[in-house]
Write a protein that binds this DNA or RNA. Structure first.
Length: 591
DNA sequence: GTCCATACCTACC
DNA sequence: TTCTGACGAATTCGG
DNA sequence: CCGAATTCGTCAGAAGGTAGGTATGGAC
């Protein structure tokens, strides 16, 4: 089977807005396939290259792709960037350049099996040259359309409007099976490829929960989205912890942990593994991974962040930021999966698995309390919410006591209650060109407030810094830039832009960024961690000055300046990596 | 030849 | 993670 | 009563913020 008909189906799906038409296009392509080819096609339709749970990644991003495009089409890097800028999508640009430069293949056709083999091989090597060779091997025989969609899926931005839900429906339609069966199987097996193959064989019923393989997470709906009145007696309340959603599966001495994307993260959290080794029996639990202070208070998400992407933590980290897995649901008790049981029964089953006690335990169970009937529900919620915040939590979650575990669904059985957002008026001082749908408009703003006659950047530029650091930074930069430019512009402490506000300039490192000629007023939300509230107060105070000095006025964004190809610093062409420019990595904070 | 900074990619909220 | 906008089905409205 | 308008559930996509792992290329 060729990639060609899948690419054609994806193109059809992309160019129509109708979900049904997208579904039909994909279903048509799926119907002609089976086995591994079907699996590969289903994964590609959902924007994936490897099976769910593979754990590896291709390691091919904008930079390597640009190199490939240059090699394939003979276009200059500047031309590639310009085309990507126009289309808002590097994959789209690749296809167009292949077409324009007459680089379409006339050779042997590319099969889905080859594509799957390429994905696997790409994930298997870290060597840039080897990756390039593997890509070249397939792309050199691809048509323009195949090129576009292969590049898109490799870059992780398919943008055909047919992820998850539409592809599930397409599988159901292709093989004439009930959509509910597809959904159920997807929640349990999680890999669209496997599910598609099961659907074709009419064996969706065989999908089972397996200890050691994660299920899709059950998610909570925000309270604002809840329509029906709630019966207080049907719900319990739990604290909503601000950490990372995690499943822990224990089978004998094997303990496995899975993060939100269902990747294995076991080696990062040995303290949790040890805690689970110490308990009796097999089990699979759903919960939140958090960092706590010695007295049992949760620390903000930032504290956990340092542990997140580490394959193996250092002893120092284990000492300074030990993590705790706080379980709030049970999926399997060693004898069978409990997903269909009502929450109350699952809760009872889970309570048998409590680990060692104490605030520094690496395994705790999240307390749940029944709602009362003495006060009106909104009042109870307000009180519970404030109490949860006072304990350092993000908010509360309401859970229906009669609800099964609805894997992979965001239903109204779980309802999260978080803080109402305060707003703050700020000024945009820099922006980047958008991608995808947003091509041609400005986005990715840097915010500022007025301080006296000078704009001080806040928002993303300052995120993560303390008030003291901000003050120091501000003073230093004011000294430099007031003298040199008559104004203060900055994107990152070490990056000072070159002009004030009377024109548009691109910054040195914020490559695709440019200032707006006139600041525009926007609103941002205050949904930061509690400790950042002080900082926002300070910013609010600065903002008050803006009103007095009359600096607030609404103006239009200007068109971006013509882009001149910049001479590459090195011999190798480097691509401005789309809108995911990393502006961060402050050396000051690394200490 | 080794070391180190950094460019790139990825994944969590 | 949140937010927005869109589709399509269900429900209500109006002639 | 029937078609039009509105509501509602669901989904896709965009966006912002942050840090670690790995390959690589230049400095020494």
């Amino acid at each position: 089977m060729r990639v060609r008909s899948l690419a054609a189906a994806l193109e059809t799906a992309r160019t129509t807005r109708s979900r049904i038409a997208k579904e039909q296009a994909l279903a048509g392509a799926f119907r002609e396939l089976d086995g591994q080819q079907l699996a590969t096609a289903a994964r590609i339709a959902t924007g994936r290259t490897l099976p769910v749970g593979d754990g590896r990644s291709l390691g091919v991003g904008g930079s390597l792709m640009t190199e490939l495009i240059v090699q394939r089409t003979g276009a200059a890097p500047a031309e590639v960037w310009e085309t990507a800028r126009q289309t808002g999508d590097l994959g789209e640009a690749f296809g167009r350049l292949v077409q324009d430069k007459g680089g379409e293949s006339t050779g042997a056709e590319v099969s889905l099996d080859e594509v799957a083999a390429m994905f696997d091989a790409l994930a298997g090597t870290g060597n840039r040259a080897q990756k390039l060779g593997l890509l070249e091997g397939v792309f050199s025989r691809a048509t323009a359309l195949e090129t576009t969609y292969l590049a898109k899926v490799i870059l992780g931005s398919l943008r055909v409007g047919a992820l998850g839900g539409v592809t599930e429906a397409a599988i159901a339609r292709a093989f004439d099976v009930p959509i509910e069966d597809v959904r159920r199987a997807m929640a349990l097996v999680t890999d669209p490829g496997t599910v598609a193959v099961l659907a074709k064989a009419r064996r969706l019923g065989e999908a089972r929960f397996e200890l050691g393989r994660p299920v899709a997470y059950m998610l909570a709906t925000p309270l604002e989205g809840v329509v029906q009145p709630l019966d207080p007696e049907a719900f319990v309340l739990e604290d909503k912890l601000d950490g990372v959603r995690t499943q822990v599966h224990k089978s004998g001495d094997d303990v496995a942990m899975f993060a939100r994307g269902l990747e294995r993260v076991t080696t990062a959290f040995p303290e949790v593994v040890n805690a689970f080794r110490a308990i009796e029996g097999d089990v699979a639990l759903d919960g939140e991974l958090v960092v706590m202070t010695p007295d049992g208070r949760p620390r903000p998400f930032q504290a956990l962040q340092a542990r997140l992407r580490r394959l193996a933590p250092t002893d120092e980290m284990l000492e300074k930021t030990p993590v705790t897995f706080v379980a709030f649901d049970i999926l399997h008790d060693g004898r069978g999966d409990l997903l269909a049981l009502p929450w109350l029964e699952r809760r009872n089953a889970m309570d048998r698995f409590s680990g060692e006690r104490g605030p520094r335990s690496a395994f705790l169970i999240n307390p749940a309390v029944r709602l009362g009937t003495e006060a009106p529900l909104p009042e109870q919620l307000d009180r519970a919410f404030e109490q949860a915040r006072a304990r350092g939590h993000e908010g509360v979650v309401l859970k229906r006591i009669d609800s099964p575990y609805e894997a992979g669904r965001r239903g109204q059985a779980w309802i999260k209650v978080k803080r109402a957002f305060a707003t703050l008026d700020v000024v945009i001082t820099a922006a980047e060109e958008g991608h995808g749908k947003r091509a041609g408009v400005l986005s990715d703003y840097t915010f500022a407030v007025w301080k006296d006659d000078v704009l001080v950047n806040v928002g993303k530029a300052y995120s993560g810094l303390t008030d003291v650091e901000i003050d120091e930074m501000t003073q230093r930069l004011e000294a430099i830039t007031l003298e040199r430019h008559g104004g203060l512009r900055m994107v990152k402490p070490e990056i000072v832009l070159e002009v004030a506000f009377d024109g548009i300039q691109r910054s040195t490192r914020h490559k695709s960024g440019f200032a707006l000629r006139f600041p525009r007023i926007v609103r941002i939300r205050d949904d930061k961690a509690p400790e950042e509230a002080d900082r926002l107060d300070a910013v609010q105070a600065l903002f008050a000055a803006q009103v007095e000095t009359g600096h607030r006025e609404e103006t239009e964004a200007l068109e971006p300046p013509p882009r001149e190809p910049k001479a590459p610093r090195k011999k190798k062409p480097k691509e401005p990596p789309a809108n995911q420019l990393s502006l961060f990595g402050d050396p000051e904070k690394r200490r």
